[in-house]
Design a protein around this nucleic acid. Sequence first.
DNA 1: AATGAATGAGATTTCATTCAT
DNA 2: AATGAATGAAATCTCATTCAT
Lengths: 217, 217, 217, 217
Amino acid sequence: MAQVPKEHVRRRIVAAAAHLFAARGYAATTVASVAARAGTSTGNVYKYFAGKEALFDAVLPEAFARDVRRLTHARIVALGSARDVRELPRDARYHVVAGELLERCLAERERVVILLARAEGTRFARFAEDFGRALVSWALGYARRAWPEVPRSPALGFALSAVYRGYLRSLAEALMSLPSRPRAQAAIELLTTHHQGGLAQLFASLARGPAPRELAP
Amino acid sequence: MAQVPKEHVRRRIVAAAAHLFAARGYAATTVASVAARAGTSTGNVYKYFAGKEALFDAVLPEAFARDVRRLTHARIVALGSARDVRELPRDARYHVVAGELLERCLAERERVVILLARAEGTRFARFAEDFGRALVSWALGYARRAWPEVPRSPALGFALSAVYRGYLRSLAEALMSLPSRPRAQAAIELLTTHHQGGLAQLFASLARGPAPRELAP
Amino acid sequence: MAQVPKEHVRRRIVAAAAHLFAARGYAATTVASVAARAGTSTGNVYKYFAGKEALFDAVLPEAFARDVRRLTHARIVALGSARDVRELPRDARYHVVAGELLERCLAERERVVILLARAEGTRFARFAEDFGRALVSWALGYARRAWPEVPRSPALGFALSAVYRGYLRSLAEALMSLPSRPRAQAAIELLTTHHQGGLAQLFASLARGPAPRELAP
Amino acid sequence: MAQVPKEHVRRRIVAAAAHLFAARGYAATTVASVAARAGTSTGNVYKYFAGKEALFDAVLPEAFARDVRRLTHARIVALGSARDVRELPRDARYHVVAGELLERCLAERERVVILLARAEGTRFARFAEDFGRALVSWALGYARRAWPEVPRSPALGFALSAVYRGYLRSLAEALMSLPSRPRAQAAIELLTTHHQGGLAQLFASLARGPAPRELAP
DNA sequence: AATGAATGAGATTTCATTCAT
DNA sequence: AATGAATGAAATCTCATTCAT
């Protein structure tokens, strides 16, 4: 047998990498610093991972990004397909981030942060941007049912995408900064309330009509 | 040899650096690329600036950050001190980013972007975070006058700070992505509407009272 | 102007690399050793070449390999198409390596050596082997006209290919070891005499012709 | 723990090393790959050998190189001391590589290959070159008896040495590439025929004897 | 004795900074 | 003042060698 159980070290390396990637970003994190934080040597990291990229893949597998996308889409569809927000189960109301998605976000904080805000230099560099755009198109579909008069414009397209990206980033940072689970969840609910209140106000002002009774997702 | 006025070259270097820092971030920008874009040589950059950090200081002087902070604070105070939003001059209504601050943002897009979103690796790395926190404390003071029942909680503190940072970031990205002045301004107005609508909704829900007639800054 | 003419340094680097690649092989040569021999620093080598591979390409461009192949083929065709060796011009007689090919070999000794014997780790790793096989097939075509009874066998195929590769290698080494041009040329002629005498003997013995009267050990 | 006889493991390690050194060369072979092929661990290799060099010594002991040298010399002396080639025993005739030497070559292919062609980076790096020179001096002695007019010249010295080295290398490659014993032996005979025919031709031409009637390309 | 994880020196490559011209 | 070649420190990655189990 070897002197330390392999799996133990591997986990320590992945944890160290996740922490540092989330804290400083992929590019600014050196393999040496990961090794140091994991309590091992630079060379040894390469016993477990083929290289820095492979280490990143272990921290943030493609499947994770897929899940985030899928779960988010599912939430939007669920919220949007309800004829009226009042039909939604009480605690799901207004919340894009709820259910399984919320669980994942809380359980895998660092991954969410990296995916949404620290992926510079990786294949997910554009994820937040692309995802923001996708969210906008999903959300616009829903919004048009409530406010059919909402016009199209480049500025609006940009603003919505920025708003969604900002929302996602905020979620990521909440997960990052609030180690206690209930606090993180509370913050997410506040952020979502803000996000949706903002969208409602935005669409209402564009439609020049009165604020709708029920809010956008 | 050449009697090119020093100031001319210096400005070209600063402009090139501002552009590249804003586009790729401080760390990812090489001095060589700045020199190339400025149409001069690497070595010559060091005739004008002591090093990469000094170049950054020239692009984004402490005074600029101070101005952003001061002008923003002034706006918040102005909005908050009005007994009623209806007292505000018409076109300033609801807008944190307006007046001189808006002018500066539009005129010096790149600096704002760098300050709020591309400062990784510089002494402003935490600016957005700290600034977000400051905005929160200013805004909370105002909010408490309108919704005295709003409780204090770490989650709320964090959420507000995140919301403000997200707002600032969105502004930065709007400035970055929309080169046309009217579009950038339109996007900023939409972002501000969203931001303030969101805050109103957030405070209202916390106060469990009805949404107020007039919105928070 | 810079402190040293660029072209001068570039040439020194290429020359140093050519020397070391030829002496120790590509893989065993470090960029640092090339830089040292060129009288410069490791980092500076990268001002002139994108990397070790690019440096190799500069030392041994694809075109050089193509020329060696083409000129050799042309010689074999020229020799083989003569109905009788006695028809060949006096000084071309017997010589695969003559004319332009000989010139290139003498003028670019190190490149020939690298191509034929020190290319491990580069895209020319298999050049000598492939080239040997090609030479065999060209030469066998000619040989069958002179000795139609020559049989086919794996051992013969292998032996011919080895003989040709050995011949090429010898040429390379002659070029390497004999700095004086007349000596190198003299050695090449001797090597060619040996090579061709050996082939004649080989084919003759296979054709069951008489063994020559005299034999060297 | 395990009471596997030490000698068994040792042999497996040496065999694995011999195979890999012959296939890829000393420098390109990693100790880990040797261990893997031997079905043991890297660490354990160091229980049997002080290091990579010691492992090489075990694969290719000085005695082996000495034997190759001695047996070859003996063959040359035997061939050279016969007043006439016709006095030699039939199957030894013309063959430098025959008898015990041939046996050793066939039985210990890998070692011969390493010694003659894959010793880059070891103390035998120059063996082939030195050995070629030695062969030349032995052979020249013999040749002068048959062709007393053969002149001395640096080019001739070099050419002979190259020819011998090429011959040795070819033998090594035949041993490498032809796993079947009869084929390897057949190839060796063909290579030897070529080698000796070439020498005869070479000496004859130097002695101003007539060119042979037929010539290969 | 055996394992394979761990180490650290060295290789390639990048880039802020310096320096000769 | 201007140039861009030169330098050297640091990052990624490999591998011979050591060591805890």
